Computed example of a mutant assay.
Amino acid sequence: MNKIFLALALLLVIGFSVAYWKMGGLKAPTITQETTETPYFLAGRYYEGPANDEAFGDLTREAYQLRKDGKIRGDFGNIFYNSPESSRDAAKVFVGIVVADTVSQQLPANYRYRAFAAGQKVVHARIDASYLLAPDKLYTGIKEYAAANKLTLQNVYLERFPDKGEPEVLAVVK
């Protein structure tokens, strides 16, 4: 009986390891320092409060559903106005969809546009991995890059999670 449990445990470990690898868990992010050339526009809603609050989850699900239903075309994204560490307790975030422009789509009544301005100095992190694994790897990469290059981050972050392509985070540098 113990051999059966050991064999099952080994199979589970191998299965999870293969899944983690296939999702890009062993890949490292690409980190660059650059200046944004064009603005990023988001259609969405602002949220301020605990990140684990149901209201935050509702906004995220609403954005995904609007995108899935074709009511807004673009990639899921957020603009965080505080550091990822402090956002667990008090998130300040604009939740929505990164769109191409602010004129080609009709927004739902409760949605607004926000812009992540062009001309900002940013640390840009991207990774060829699942959006489930990407945020932790991207934020860790940004933090390590900023520390190694003696950069001070302004605690404004743009997250973009495309269906096809690399998830990315842009962190504004002071």
Rank of each mutant, 00 (worst) to 15 (best):
S86R: 11
L153W: 09
T35K: 15
A109F: 00
H124Q: 07
P167K: 05
K174E: 14
N110R: 10
L170P: 03
V103E: 12
S83P: 02
D58A: 15
H124G: 01
P84H: 01
V156Q: 13
Y131M: 05
Q106T: 15
F5D: 01
G24T: 03
K71N: 09
L153M: 08
P84G: 06
A100C: 00
V156K: 15
G74Y: 06
I4M: 14
E48V: 09
I79V: 14
M23I: 03
A100W: 04
N110E: 10
A115N: 04
P39M: 10
R126H: 09
V93P: 00
A90K: 15
I14N: 06
A148R: 10
A134L: 06
K150P: 03
G165H: 07
A91F: 02
K121I: 02
V172H: 09
Y113A: 01
E85N: 09
K150R: 11
P29A: 13
A148L: 07
V156A: 05
T152V: 09
T140V: 08
R114W: 03
Y46I: 00
I142W: 05
V93I: 12
A134R: 04
N155P: 00
R88E: 07
N82T: 14
R88C: 00
V93R: 04
G24E: 01
N155K: 13
R73L: 08
G74Q: 08
L12M: 14
L170D: 03
A19R: 13
G77D: 05
A7W: 11
Y131T: 07
P162A: 07
A117P: 15
G96H: 07
A115C: 01
Y47W: 06
Y111W: 14
V93K: 01
K137F: 10
A51K: 02
M1Y: 06
Y81P: 02
Q105K: 09
N110G: 05
Y111C: 02
D53K: 12
Q33R: 14
A91H: 02
Y111S: 02
E54G: 00
A118N: 06
K71D: 09
A19F: 12
N2F: 05
A147E: 15
Y113C: 00
V99F: 02
A55P: 01
P84L: 03
E62A: 14
A171N: 08
A118I: 10
L107N: 03
Y81T: 02
V173K: 13
V13D: 09
T102R: 09
G57D: 11
I72S: 05
A147W: 04
V156N: 02
A7N: 04
K143E: 13
G70D: 11
F5H: 08
T30R: 13
V99N: 01
N155E: 14
E85L: 11
E37P: 00
V95S: 04
L158E: 06
A125G: 11
F80A: 10
D101H: 04
A148N: 14
F16W: 13
A148E: 15
K164T: 15
G15H: 11
L8C: 08
